[in-house]
């Protein structure tokens, strides 16, 4: 996105799928039903040689989509979900609008998860699982940790200004093909 440009979702989709095979692309309101359809579409994308990575990508995709479906502050602003395959491997990009107030929290959560997994993935996950409590939406607060574990690489992210009160939050999950 050029400095001073208005954020454009269609440009975002094009920029993030350059030189890649687009496996799944979605733009709109991510609801539970639409998440189900995206996962069903992804289920058939992998061949026998990709069994291990298939499950990791599907689990991460489920957590990413359910996070947006449960926590999206602006469901009427289109969210995006993109699964691609390129020379480096598989990647999922997911984006949705968030309020400025939430940026710092989201950034902290992702940095914490990346740090905890880097220190000791197994013990930190087991501790989190044992201590997990349900939220009002039925989540267990383990989603980001699970996404990071399945990716096998640090989660990346970006925030782009939409207007004075809103950012577009872009989650980038690359999968370690050799893990």
């Amino acid at each position: 996105m050029k400095p001073g440009s208005r954020f454009n979702i269609d440009d975002f989709l094009v920029e993030n799928s350059i030189a890649s095979d687009v496996l799944v692309q979605f733009k709109g309101t991510i609801t539970e039903k639409k998440s189900d359809r995206i996962i069903d579409d992804m289920e058939v994308l992998f061949d026998d040689q990709e069994k291990k990575i298939r499950k990791r990508i599907l689990i991460a995709a489920v957590e990413i989509l359910q996070n947006v479906s449960k926590h999206n502050e602006f469901p009427l602003y289109p969210a995006v979900f993109l699964a691609i395959r390129n020379k480096q491997g598989f990647r999922i990009d997911c984006g949705n609008a968030i309020s400025i107030q939430r940026r710092a929290l989201i950034e902290k959560l992702i940095r914490d998860v990346n740090r905890k997994v880097a220190i000791n993935a197994k013990d930190n996950y087991r501790k989190a699982l044992d201590e997990a409590e349900f939220s009002d939406q039925g989540g267990a607060g383990l989603g980001l940790l699970e996404i990071r574990r399945k990716a096998g690489m640090p989660i990346d992210f970006a925030f782009t200004v939409i207007d004075d009160e809103t950012y577009f939050f872009h989650l980038i999950v690359k999968f370690n093909m050799s893990a």
Binding site: K55, E63, D130, A132, F134, A140, G141, L142
Partner: peptide, 13 residues
């Protein structure tokens, strides 16, 4: 199980 989400992981626990 084939796979399960984190919400299920808590219920399974």
């Amino acid at each position: 199980l084939d796979y399960f989400n984190t919400s299920s992981s808590k219920c399974l626990l």
